[in-house]
Structure formats: structure tokens, C-alpha cells
């Protein structure tokens, strides 16, 4: 079961981060966000920080899953889990890139 967790963890973290940033963007652009005095500049800063943190976590996972403590004893599982961790990193960079390239709240 630990091997199944190893395989599913990085992408699960991606979907959590992705949903979280999307939710954050929803809050920033909502009337409630504006009502709380959150300006667009601060809003974007929050989103970018969240993106960077998500990337850092994925990089951390890649290194973490290599350490003897968390690596799988089965070479095949280890290899697939490393590829999946890289997939999750690429997904994090790719899917949240719009936080720096796209207009906010239009």
C-alpha cells in the first residue's frame, strides 16, 4: 500500500495545489475579496506566492522520494514514482503559469 501512496502522492498534491490556487483566484476576484480590501496587486502577489510554494513542494517531493527513507524497495515502482513526480512538477508549472501571464479578474 505504501507503494500505491508513493505513486499517487505527487499528482494528488498537484490537484490540491491547483484547486487551491483556483479557489484563491476566485476569492481575489469575488465581491467578498474586494470587500475585504484586497487589491488586485496584492491579489496577484498572493497567487504568485502560492504558485512558487506549490512548485517548491513538488521539487521537495522529487528529492524526498529518492531518499532511502521514502524510496521504494522495488526498482520498478521507484522508477515510475520518480517519473510521476516529474509529471506533477511539470503539471504544476504548466497549469498555474497563467498567474504571471494572464489578466486578473477580467
Amino acid at each position: 500500500m505504501k507503494d500505491i501512496l508513493r505513486l499517487s502522492l505527487p499528482l494528488s498534491v498537484w490537484i490540491a495545489a491547483f484547486s487551491g490556487v483556483y479557489g484563491l483566484e476566485g476569492v481575489v476576484c469575488s465581491d467578498r475579496g474586494a470587500g475585504a480590501g484586497l487589491g488586485l496587486g496584492q491579489g496577484r502577489a498572493v497567487l504568485v506566492v502560492a504558485w512558487v510554494v506549490a512548485i517548491a513542494v513538488q521539487v521537495g517531493l522529487i528529492f524526498g522520494l529518492r531518499t532511502p527513507r521514502f524510496a521504494s524497495a522495488q526498482p520498478w515502482v521507484q522508477r515510475v514514482s520518480m517519473i510521476l513526480a516529474c509529471v506533477a512538477l511539470v503539471a504544476t508549472v504548466w497549469s498555474l503559469l497563467p498567474v504571471v501571464t494572464t489578466s486578473l479578474c477580467l
Partner: peptide, 14 residues
């Protein structure tokens, strides 16, 4: 908002 759509457009191509 377009940024929200952009996230999902990016995943849809990914």
C-alpha cells in the same frame, strides 16, 4: 475570469 479559464485551458492541453 480569464485567468481561471486559463488554468483549465492549460490542463486541458496538458
Amino acid at each position: 475570469p480569464h485567468m481561471g479559464l486559463a488554468f483549465f485551458s492549460a490542463v486541458s492541453t496538458l
